[in-house]
């Protein structure tokens, strides 16, 4: 509906796509909670099939300074894709200037502008748990888009986790931050 070049009045639309069980909804919730810490309005929604695991799963997050009216993302500003199927679905956006993050271990390598391929899952495994792939990705996306401060995501992690798990997750977050700012 909106041309990408047009200003979006402080609205960021985020898509996290992959398959059920990859923790995308949780990531969407964490992102939303971080945005609330920055006094933003948030709308988070999900699309999933009847299966609790597997199948295309999409989490959407809209972050805005003003009231959010429509529940769904209409023109994504940044996308994370964690399966080949979901990269295929969203790769046309890269040509239009939308950053598309993807996991190089889970999808074919993409060349061209606006593709951000990293081995998120493998990196998370090295840090201690492959389930933290999303946290690394969120860190990278936060910096790339400027939609949210890494510190806000860190605060959300501190509310959710404790002890060693928390330390691991914070490491993962800043690993992601380092990928893009580095």
């Amino acid at each position: 509906m909106r041309d990408k070049k047009e200003t979006k009045n402080g609205i960021t639309e985020v898509v996290l796509a992959g398959s059920g069980g990859q923790g995308l909804i949780s990531s969407g919730i964490m992102l939303g909670e971080a945005a609330i810490l920055e006094d933003k309005n948030v709308m988070q929604s999900a699309s999933y099939g009847i299966a609790q695991r597997g199948g295309l799963s999409i989490a959407e997050v809209i972050i805005s300074d003003s009231e959010i009216l429509f529940q769904h993302v209409e023109s994504p500003d940044i996308v994370l894709t964690l399966t080949e199927e979901s990269v295929k679905l969203y790769e046309p956006l890269a040509e239009k200037g939308v950053p598309v993050f993807y996991d190089t271990m889970l999808a074919e390598k993409r060349t061209g502008d606006n593709f951000y391929g990293y081995p998120f899952t493998e990196m998370a495994g090295v840090l201690g748990h492959s389930g933290m792939a999303n946290v690394i990705a969120l860190g990278a996306m936060a910096v790339r888009s400027g939609m949210i401060k890494a510190e806000s995501l860190e605060e959300v992690l501190r509310e959710r986790f404790a002890g060693e798990t928390l330390e691991m997750n914070i490491k993962a977050l800043y690993k992601g931050v380092g990928l893009v700012s580095g």
Partner: peptide, 9 residues
């Protein structure tokens, strides 16, 4: 379903 599953601040 839309409203029921949406999350907002």
């Amino acid at each position: 379903e839309v409203i029921a599953h949406a999350r907002q601040n």
